[in-house]
Design a protein around this nucleic acid. Structure first.
Length: 336
DNA sequence: AACTTGGACAACCGCGCACAT
DNA sequence: TATGTGCGCGGTTGTCCAAGT
């Protein structure tokens, strides 16, 4: 029931960074007991440590445990973390069970310091795994860079767009790219959305007066889809239009979903054998999270994980200048 | 050289759950 | 059933260090 007073509140109990001597004492004690700790609360006294039992447990599980893998996260690990987070949310301990030798604390830290920022740069909300509203990305990003770009006159626009895109190296979502393309085409054609729509032979760009209830108008005057299926349609459309859609994120998530269907794996585990206590305890919560993630209006990449992977031929990364150069060339070569 | 800023990561804190009594 | 105990979890803070000014 209630929380008992923690020994950490005791006066004289040491806090802060662990010394090598303390590490040796803790490891030595645990090893003498066969790597098993019967009571963390009693451990400090038994081991001769002036530390809180909780602090000892944390130090052991997050740092001293022999099976911990140190060093940088690999690309595969990073993708797996993103895929798992899309499905599970901030269930760091559960996510950690899918990465050999990684602790929940390490994954949590890596998420907060690296992946979170990376996703934001890509125009993906790290919490919902949905694309950020276009205005948040284009308005403050490409659009803002464009507006701030000196000499962005009629002749200078393509260069300005290229420069703006280059300045946003992390841009990496189909939605953003499509909008950038629209912006580019509008600039190059001097025409507008409808001309671009005609060029692309589909409803990628519609009139602001569209009756598409799922669309929204961004600050560039283009209508962009706000629901998942429209985004997928846009993805396929771009693929078929021979533009080089570069949604690494979509592809990555879809691919990992094939190999890491967490809920399915755990249901199998649950059915086959009694799992460790921590895992058993986490099952109902996980299902709840997964279900919640798939529920509208928070419809995002959790759904995507369960869908078919999307074929994206000729994919290249937006981190690569080539994408923007190709796009610019395409735009210039299109009939007006 | 001194100071500031920001990133990375270890460690702490408090809550809730499971289990024992 | 009520209460106590221990542990695990997720969020937050503290500390170190490198880069920039």
């Amino acid at each position: 029931m209630g929380r008992s007073p923690c020994c950490c509140h005791d006066a004289g109990v040491k806090k802060g960074p662990w010394t090598e001597e303390e590490d040796r004492t803790l490891v030595g004690h645990i090893e003498r007991h066969g790597g098993h700790v019967s009571s963390w609360r009693n451990l400090p006294k038994a081991a001769g440590l002036n530390r809180c039992g909780k602090s000892c447990r944390l130090r052991w599980t997050n740092y001293l445990r022999p099976d911990i893998k140190r060093g940088n996260f690999t690309d595969d690990e990073e993708r797996l973390i993103i895929a798992l987070h899309a499905k599970l949310g901030n269930k760091w301990s559960t996510i950690a069970t899918h990465l050999d030798g990684r602790t929940d604390n390490e994954i949590k830290n890596y998420w907060n310091t690296h992946i979170r920022k990376k996703l934001l740069r890509m125009g993906v909300d790290p919490v919902t795994h949905q694309r950020l509203p276009p205005d948040d990305v284009l308005g403050l990003g490409l659009g803002g860079a464009l507006l701030a770009s000196p000499g962005a006159g009629a002749r200078g626009l393509p260069e300005a767009i290229l420069a703006a895109a280059a300045s946003l190296g992390g841009l990496n979502s189909v939605l953003v790219q499509a909008q950038a393309l629209q912006l580019l085409l509008q600039a190059v054609n001097g025409g507008g959305a409808t001309a671009a729509a005609g060029l692309m032979g589909a409803n990628l760009v519609a009139s602001p007066a569209t009756d598409n209830n799922n669309a929204m108008v961004n600050n560039a005057g283009s209508v962009v889809p706000t629901n998942f299926h429209d985004q997928i349609n846009m993805t396929n459309l771009l693929a078929h239009a021979s533009y080089p859609p570069a949604d690494d994120y979509l592809n990555t998530m879809a691919r990992f979903a094939e190999h890491h269907d967490v809920v399915q794996q755990q249901q199998q585990l649950n059915a086959s054998a009694p799992a460790p206590a921590a895992t058993v305890a986490s099952f109902p919560q996980e299902e709840g999270v997964a279900a919640a993630a798939g529920r509208r209006p928070v419809q995002g990449f959790a759904d995507l994980l369960l869908s078919e992977p999307i074929e994206m031929p000729g994919m290249c990364s937006l981190e690569d200048d080539r994408f923007w150069k190709d796009m610019l060339a395409e735009g210039n070569s299109l009939p007006l």
